[in-house]
Write a protein that binds this DNA or RNA. Sequence first.
DNA 1: TAGATTGTTAATCGATTAACAATC
DNA 2: TAGATTGTTAATCGATTAACAATC
Lengths: 210, 210
Amino acid sequence: MKKVNNSAIRRLPRYYRELKKWQKNKRLFASTRELSEILGVHETQIRKDLAITGHRGIPKKGHRIDTLLKAIEKFLRWDDDNSAFIVGVGNIGTALIKHKQYENSGLKIVAAFDSNPAKIGKSINSVEVLPMDKLGNLIERMHIHIGIITTPPHAAQKIANTMVKSGIMGIWNFTSEQIIVPENIILENVDLYYGLSVLSHRVSQKLKNK
Amino acid sequence: MKKVNNSAIRRLPRYYRELKKWQKNKRLFASTRELSEILGVHETQIRKDLAITGHRGIPKKGHRIDTLLKAIEKFLRWDDDNSAFIVGVGNIGTALIKHKQYENSGLKIVAAFDSNPAKIGKSINSVEVLPMDKLGNLIERMHIHIGIITTPPHAAQKIANTMVKSGIMGIWNFTSEQIIVPENIILENVDLYYGLSVLSHRVSQKLKNK
DNA sequence: TAGATTGTTAATCGATTAACAATC
DNA sequence: TAGATTGTTAATCGATTAACAATC
């Protein structure tokens, strides 16, 4: 089993988004040098990252943008069935649902769930909001593999349990709750405040040295 | 100049949040062993991270929670003036404003800005929404050091320019736009979709191997 | 052809983990 | 005291960067 380079996988969508822009401007080739300058990622790093997709560049010209985009899509399995359910239609949940079409991310949010009766039955970008008690059943029936949790933290563990029991394979957790899942379940935690401590620490440091 | 360990700084708030919970449950001491088990961070890692705050644990007992919390606050300068302005009162912006009090993050959002006249004048959690044209002026007058950008991507660079010109020192960018700032400005980019590619890649991998 | 840009191997760097003496 | 837990030094690991031959 060849080991996967998660750092590279995380960076690929950034390249993808930038390349999409270039494509819109009718450019045909991209050199890692230019990507490097704009994205602030080391040139060699980008070459290695692109290498994992199997795409080959042409010396002196760079990478053909159209085939490279396809290679990234293929490598990240954006053509596969990445249907997901989202639970919690608050601000973050709504943001994710609304962003889904113009972020090229390979994710398809097919339904939303909320416990608030005022929200149930409504649609956001044609994603319907359903009552919580349908969650488990629909995961099973629709063979959904990815669950997104954007509820208040206290509700997160219970929802995760339902998801796991119904056959979800990966959970994308936006709450600050430390969710516990069986070992075979893939869990990605998103901490909105992750970078803040570094930012404020460095700003304070700078103020002090003035 | 001793070098700062950014990885450790990013992890400290996680320890902090967990310890706060323990404190609420009237616990007085915390061992790195227990923290390690709950947070899934290596025991030695936690010891090293806590060491940068200068706090010392007691062999056989662990760290006194109350003094440790204070030490983390002090190290991360949460007592300093971390007043910030936020620009863009959409879903993400609103989420950040609403979360501000119960997330212990040392950040104080003191005003919001938006270009939508329908939003101007309103308040979210007693944070007033002001018109965009007041941004630069108020940054200067109120000596704000941190700016948060939660607008659509296309507006981000212009706002960053205004912020920089008015004296902002750190920018927390939630848009997918690659903002360019002078070298002396601290920039933290948040990519909501950062972990998604790894999640969906691993889920696809798993499905294939079934 | 000459030279720009590639892909890859080797070297460096930094972060994580292991080992262990110190100590309440 | 005995032993649990600390803080730190050394070893490992993985990711980043440098160097360079290959090639369109």
